[in-house]
Nucleic acid binder design. Structure first.
Lengths: 348, 348
DNA sequence: TGACAAATTTGGAACGTTCCAATTATTAAG
DNA sequence: CTTAATAATTGGAACGTTCCAAATTTGTCA
């Protein structure tokens, strides 16, 4: 029907004003008369006008687009999905739109995705880096003045803001809790050893052991993929040991669920026959049977905080790199054996 | 340091050619001499050039951007996360970039998100519609010639392509399988009754009952939220019945997991004391204990197909709406009681 | 060497918006 | 009724790219 797309000029013609006036209306400027404003608005509705942000960005070199990019390393892990949801909440209410991409731990894909986002003129980036990411990978971004917030995995040496959870405090608290229940052989299961997160959680594990007056036995840390399957694998190896552990703090909830699966496959009941504690507090943690005792990170609020920090930097124009570690809280449920099984404590 | 951003003109100057030539290089045109091409390329590297897609789109009115939008209704459901991953795979290898957003079942948010995507000039849209979405909501999109592929939930009356799984065939097969194991009272648990998907799966359930020569008892269909918590709730009501069922096909895997949880909370073992079959085949289905018998939809391949269909339409310029329903396959594991528990059938 | 074809390169003129300075319409004050 | 102030509107000129037609260089063949 109509040839090209509808532009401000078409609107201007239809409303009997100039394109400048239409532009003013578009930006909600107070300079324009109420009568003309509504005239223009109805013309836009009538012609089915769509704003061309590309053209707008072109002109206002500084104001940037209203996109903020989010890059995660594993979207199939519900932790990251929820993180993204948290980001989306605050980003959306600030009138921005989220541009989410998944790297599947591929550093090449990460490079591509970030480059593509730059081309589209994102005004900020929230990223959970893929595994082998280096600090220098973000150099060009910060050089270009694009605020970056790194989440979940810290990136030592990078001059960007970061939000990580208190991994060390979390596992430390978990170990102390298990010790207070009488366990003396407590394992640390799952996770790849070459990540900063692993190191931190392991350090907390050792710290908790010390606080509880228990010795550290290297044999009790068993690494594996940080997934459900990895958990099955790890608990298998733990149980095969001569002097087997009676409890475990796991690298994350996925591993913890796998550990529960593995226990059941060997006719042991998690909570009763073996205590397990997770890390993350994904949604399934509370509805699972037995409900998972875990260190609660609340990915959604982490996402919200990351988004807030990023927006602050975007608005400030040029903010200092800020490093925050979010507090973490041990949520005692059933899988650790601290019997407190009550059905329907609160409304579902 | 440098004032504005680096543009083709800066590159041209540095390389001693004209901006047109730089543009040619950018597009990989065969017209340009090898020597000049590399000269230009190194100039770009040196000055840290970033392509401004906004400006490019402005000029080439037709060619559109290289963004394809993906809108899902619940990112925290891993089914959709995996769907998105599938889309990303093919979209990425075609040189497009994915722009993923979540509506959380909010139809308003869906409108906003789609509007925003249009402003950014997406060249195609894949959407799993929020719950109350109407066919007319996509009218403006198709009128503007933007290809749309609806996935998961069909949208009767909309003139857009769609990819849905064979819901009816799936539940039908599930019921027949349970009947072949000797069950005669088979429930249908979970799901909101006001969705097309529910209707289809329910129809398949009834069809399966008929094929197996069993009668349909309305009392045995118990709806609930399509979530883990909803499953717990539904099985609770099923068990409270006088003439209780001995098996259930569930609206989806999340519900099925909830059903398993609910059974255990009542000291019944899924698979042994009660047969449960899910729908979707999310990744956890195979690692869970007991492994979930379920109708496999493979969200990832569904995502891939959706992306392929969309790309086809984008390339064709103006393709007909195509409605495909993807085949579905009953995967028999442990939760239905058909004992075939073998550990380590294949490599993990 | 001259003429012609092929291979490369190149200045504008768009694209749809915002910004600026300048113009015109309206109101208030004298 | 004039003048000044204020409110509202308006034409270009950008922004960074691609496209087109035209210009230039290079190569080929007699």
């Amino acid at each position: 029907m109509t040839k090209g797309r509808v532009t401000v000029i078409d609107i201007a013609q239809a409303a009997g004003v100039s394109k400048s006036t239409v532009s003013l209306v578009l930006q909600g400027s107070p300079l324009v008369n109420e009568a003309t404003r509504s005239k223009v608005n109805s013309a836009m509705r009538e012609l089915g006008y769509v704003y061309n942000r590309g053209a707008a960005n072109l002109r206002q070199a500084s104001a940037k687009s209203k996109i903020i990019g989010v890059v995660v390393n594993d979207l199939t892990n519900s932790f990251f999905a929820e993180l993204a949801v948290g980001v989306d909440m605050v980003v959306q209410s600030a009138g921005f739109v989220q541009f989410l991409s998944n790297t599947s731990e591929s550093i090449d894909r990460q490079r591509e995705v970030i480059a593509s986002m730059r081309e589209h003129g994102i005004s900020g980036l929230i990223v959970s880096p893929a595994r082998a990411t280096e600090a220098v990978d973000f150099k060009p971004l910060v050089a270009a003045g694009i605020p970056v917030v790194v989440v979940v995995r810290s990136l030592p040496g990078a001059k960007v803001s970061s939000i990580v959870s208190d991994n060390e405090g979390g596992t430390s608290a978990a170990v102390e809790h298990l010790a207070s229940l009488g366990h003396t052989r407590i394992a640390f299961l799952g996770g790849f050893t070459d990540t900063a997160v692993f190191e931190e959680r392991l350090a907390g594990y050792i710290d908790g052991l010390n606080r509880a007056g228990l010795g550290f036995d290297e044999e009790l840390v068993i690494s594996s993929a940080p997934s459900r399957a990895g958990g099955v694998d790890a608990i298998g190896r733990a149980i095969a040991m001569g002097n087997r552990p009676t409890a475990a703090v796991c690298f994350n909830d996925a591993v913890a669920f796998g550990v529960c699966d593995g226990l059941r496959a060997r006719h042991m009941e998690p909570g009763r026959d073996f205590a397990v504690v997770g890390f993350d507090d994904v949604i399934e943690a509370q509805t699972a049977v037995p409900a998972l005792t875990t260190v609660s990170v609340d990915p959604q609020s982490m996402g919200r905080r990351a988004a807030q920090l990023l927006l602050k930097q975007i608005n400030a124009g040029r903010a200092e790199a800020e490093n925050v570690t979010t507090a973490v809280r041990l949520v005692v449920r059933e899988s650790c054996g601290a019997a407190q099984k009550k059905i329907g404590r609160k409304m579902a």
